[in-house]
């Protein structure tokens, strides 16, 4: 993890409040560090090693009778719809990120306009992020009900056809729509924070010189926001890769696996209806999912360690990884 290392090297030896005399504070320091260290190792690092190792073994869920089977689990994953699940993950994540970024960026630009009342409105976009997603997913579930759901009533009123969660395309649209609705407020907040860092005097000067709103966006704001846009895209991508609740509530991965993402495949194989007493397939898919998110996180760290051109440098941490 080179970017973390370089970041750490920059900040660690800085003698701000760091003290010398390592022997004296050894006891205090280890007592302070041990809870987080122990629990992280036990519930993150060890399980990661376990899952990588187990993905190469055949055996039952309790880990008895393990026999080395090489890449057999991985081959089996692709033979049992795993490849399709990866495609579904890509489609879902791409759709999710596109809607989140579009809505988030657009609404943040609107709220950044200096007009009375717009600051207060920001609070509304926090609501979908903080209320239980299971509850709001049920709202969207009723939207799609045949005949009586909001969308179908609107479509019928407009003389158009009906949508249904048992159609593959509609089901995918539904999980993307709800997922994006639930999360886009995060992009609004992050973009608003980024917009605040832009040099106000430059924008005002451009305005005085007669630059239109579109010209200011195209030639001043957008170039300065490109770096943050990349970072917000990554935060959204990591969230999209971990979508679970909306799929569980709206479609259960169906119809016929049309909305079964990689994570849902893992869940289904290990705990759900697809569970077969062996976790080999779930383990192998977990490792694939880990590899994908690792690549995304690495990109994130590389972006963070390379300061933005033009804009002032931003500090970011690989946060927001735990949203399911």
């Amino acid at each position: 993890m080179p970017p973390i290392r370089s970041k750490a090297r920059r900040s660690m030896p800085r003698p701000s409040i760091a003290r010398r005399g390592r022997a004296r504070h050894w006891g205090t320091a280890s007592a302070f560090v041990l809870p987080v260290l122990g629990l992280t190792v036990l519930f993150s690092v060890v399980p990661l090693v376990m899952v990588i190792r187990r993905s190469l073994y055949a055996g039952n869920i309790f880990g008895t009778n393990l026999t080395f089977s090489g890449l057999a689990n991985y081959r089996e994953v692709f033979a049992t719809g795993g490849g399709h699940a990866l495609i579904v993950t890509a489609v879902y994540t791409a759709g999710f990120v596109a809607v989140v970024m579009g809505l988030g960026g657009g609404i943040a630009l609107l709220l950044d306009v200096k007009l009375p009342g717009l600051r207060q409105v920001r609070a509304f976009f926090v609501i979908p992020l903080v209320v239980p997603p299971v509850a709001t997913a049920f709202i969207w579930f009723t939207f799609f009900q045949p005949g009586t759901g909001l969308f179908n009533r609107a479509l019928a009123a407009a003389g158009l056809g009906q949508v249904s969660l048992s159609s593959a395309t509609d089901a995918m649209i539904a999980v993307i729509a709800f997922g994006a609705w639930q999360f886009f407020g995060e992009a609004v907040l992050l973009y608003l924070a980024a917009l605040k860092t832009l040099p106000r005097d430059v924008l005002d000067a451009a305005s005085v010189d007669g630059a239109s709103a579109w010209q200011r966006l195209r030639w001043i704001r957008w170039p300065l926001l490109r770096h943050q846009t990349a970072l917000i895209t990554i935060v959204a991508t990591l969230t999209g890769l971990q979508a679970f609740t909306q799929i569980y509530i709206l479609t259960n991965g169906g119809p016929q696996g049309a909305t079964q993402t990689a994570l849902y495949y893992v869940y289904d194989q290990a705990f759900g209806l697809g569970a077969s007493g062996s976790t080999g397939l779930a383990d192998a898919m977990s490792v694939i999912l880990f590899a994908i998110s690792l690549i995304v996180t690495m990109t994130q760290l590389a972006l963070i360690s390379r300061p933005a051109r033009g804009a002032q440098a931003t500090r970011t941490v690989p946060a927001r990884m735990g949203r399911a």
């Binding site: 993150s44 899952v51 994570l263 880990f290 399911a324």
Partner: peptide
């Protein structure tokens, strides 16, 4: 760097 979802099974 290790999302919980990746280690949920172990």
């Amino acid at each position: 760097m290790i999302p919980f979802t990746v280690v949920i099974v172990p």
